[in-house]
Computed example of a mutant assay.
Amino acid sequence: MKKIALTLSLVLGALLTMNAQEISKNAIGLRLGGGDGFGAEVSYQRALGNNNNRLELDLGWRNDKHFDAFKLAGLYQWVWNIEGGFNWYAGAGAGIGSVDDNRVYRDDFHHDDGAFLFVAGNIGIEYNFDIPLLVSLDFRPEIGFSDYDVIDDFAPDIAIGVRYQF
């Protein structure tokens, strides 16, 4: 038991003392990709408190052959430096959106249009260039909640982000 406690305290101490690269105070750009159809999001990041935490807000649009949707996501992220300009990050958050069902039905009573809520996790890697450019690749699993079949499920979202830092 003492060995486990010692190992856990060493690992926790190492995680808490990791040297994080200073992240930009603000970054704005695009996040392109998707899990439930391709789409684009306008993405804004704001550094919080100490320099390794930030808030990310994304306003986006998604579509596929049957549905159109827009959504607003808010995520709290922790950022750790790998080496040089490479960082990795993880976070959690939630959002709200609206979906439009474009499928053609024999009657008009089955459309799954309306608002929805979702919770999301986030993990990714980014490169901070010497110029004010930040490029990222991330995975955002989302779980939607609504009365509509189209949003009531798990949606893995993979995207590439390009942001201007200021």
Rank of each mutant, 00 (worst) to 15 (best):
L55E: 06
L55C: 11
L55P: 08
E56V: 15
L57Y: 14
L57P: 11
D58F: 10
D58R: 15
D58P: 05
D58C: 11
D58A: 15
L59G: 12
W61F: 14
R62L: 04
R62T: 07
R62K: 13
R62V: 02
D64R: 02
K65A: 01
H66K: 15
H66V: 07
H66F: 12
F67G: 03
F67R: 04
D68E: 08
D68C: 00
A69T: 06
A69W: 06
F70Y: 08
L72F: 14
G74H: 09
G74S: 15
L75V: 10
L75G: 08
W78V: 12
W78C: 00
W78R: 15
W80K: 08
W80H: 00
W80Y: 05
W80R: 12
N81I: 00
N81R: 15
I82F: 05
I82M: 10
E83N: 14
E83G: 15
G84K: 14
F86D: 09
F86P: 10
Y89I: 11
A90W: 05
G91N: 05
G91F: 10
A92T: 06
A92K: 01
A92D: 08
G93R: 04
G93L: 14
G95F: 08
G95C: 07
G97T: 01
V99P: 00
V99S: 10
V99K: 01
V99T: 04
D101F: 05
D101G: 02
D101C: 07
N102G: 10
N102D: 05
N102Q: 11
R103P: 01
V104Y: 04
R106T: 15
R106K: 12
D107M: 09
D108Y: 05
D108R: 10
F109V: 06
H110L: 13
H110V: 03
H110W: 15
H110A: 12
D112S: 11
D112L: 14
D112F: 12
D112K: 07
D112W: 01
D113H: 03
G114P: 08
A115H: 10
A115L: 02
A115W: 03
L117K: 00
L117F: 13
G121W: 07
N122M: 00
I123F: 09
I123W: 01
G124Y: 04
G124V: 10
G124C: 02
E126S: 10
N128I: 11
N128D: 09
N128M: 15
D130H: 06
I131N: 10
P132Q: 05
L133H: 08
V135P: 03
V135S: 02
S136N: 08
D138W: 04
D138K: 13
F139E: 06
R140V: 15
R140P: 02
P141T: 02
P141S: 00
I143A: 06
G144I: 01
F145N: 11
Y148L: 13
Y148F: 13
V150G: 08
V150D: 15
V150I: 14
I151M: 14
I151P: 02
D152W: 07
D153G: 06
D153S: 08
D153F: 00
F154A: 02
P156D: 12
D157W: 02
I158D: 11
